[in-house]
């Protein structure tokens, strides 16, 4: 009787093994060994900052040449160089970028429209009567961006405006996507002069809503020596590729909407 038991098991096992052998040949997936190697050099944060779904996908794109070697915003220069050396590629120099919050209308500066008691999520606030602030461009301060940050580089400031720790920010862009008001932008680290306002309302309307909003007075546009500032629909926009960080616009701005983020913390 025992022979039956042994035979049943071994024959079933053998047949299953045979079937799997055939299947593994039929459904064989070609895998480049370098993909796993590059993946191990990436930070494994899976933040999606490069635009690919996770580090594995980026590793595949880099190996296949679809993405540049320095596509990972989280990698340090040394790590990027390591990957480039492994693949025998050269890296082009790129300036580090960090996320900048472009609103300063917190509890102190911005005027509130109503008290919000709902789900603690920016998107919910924005859906309710255009947000809890008079300014419809303002940060609503529920911290969806803070929750999205996988690197602990963000925290909610005292006046309910998120604060970014520049040394921890990796420019992955998660907070940029998380903000329903599109208030966070990735800007070059060496150009810290930023218009900390996104309001396209006319001057008087901005003044009613916020103490530190851009009223579109064009003072900065006139005084900028290199013409880096352009006022479009009552909002000043600095072109970081032209800006020389002279600081004149910061001084002339009557509402202090332009800040040097290296000197002032907002």
């Amino acid at each position: 009787m025992m022979i039956y038991a042994v035979m049943t098991l071994s024959v079933t096992g053998f047949l299953a093994g045979l079937g799997l052998m055939y299947a593994s040949k039929k459904f064989h997936v070609e895998k480049d060994e370098r993909i796993a190697e590059v993946n191990s050099m990436l930070p494994a944060a899976n933040c999606g900052g490069c635009g690919y779904p996770g580090c594995m996908a980026l590793a595949e794109a880099i190996v296949k040449g679809k993405a540049p070697v320095n596509a990972c915003p989280v990698c340090s220069k040394e790590e990027t160089k390591m990957i480039a050396a492994y693949l025998g590629l050269s890296v082009s120099a790129s300036v580090r970028r960090i996320a900048r919050v472009r609103c300063n209308g917190g509890c102190e500066n911005g005027i509130e429209k109503y008290n919000y008691y709902g789900p603690r999520d920016c998107h919910s606030v924005v859906m309710l009567g255009g947000g809890n602030k008079v300014c419809t461009y303002a940060c609503v301060g529920e911290g969806s961006c803070v929750k999205s940050c996988a690197f602990g580089a963000m925290r909610m400031g005292k006046d309910k405006i998120p604060v970014i720790a520049p040394e921890k920010c990796t420019a992955c862009g998660a907070c940029v996507k998380a903000c329903p008001r599109d208030l966070i932008t990735l800007l070059p680290e060496d150009k810290p002069i930023v218009v900390v306002c996104r309001s396209k309302d006319k001057g008087p309307d901005v003044k009613k809503a916020c103490k530190v909003g851009c009223i579109g007075c064009k003072m900065c546009e006139k005084k900028c020596p290199v013409g880096a500032i352009d006022v479009d629909s009552f909002l000043a926009v600095i072109d970081p590729s032209v800006c020389t960080v002279c600081g004149i616009c910061v001084e002339v701005c009557p509402t202090h909407a332009i800040c040097d983020l290296k000197k002032t913390k907002i």
Binding site: L9, T12, G19, L20, A23, F27
Partner: peptide, 19 residues
């Protein structure tokens, strides 16, 4: 025996899904 069959099948499904 049932476990053996199921394990083999799962391996098979895994290969198909990966492909």
């Amino acid at each position: 025996v049932f476990i053996l069959v199921i394990a083999a099948l799962v391996q098979f499904v895994e290969m198909v899904i990966e492909k």
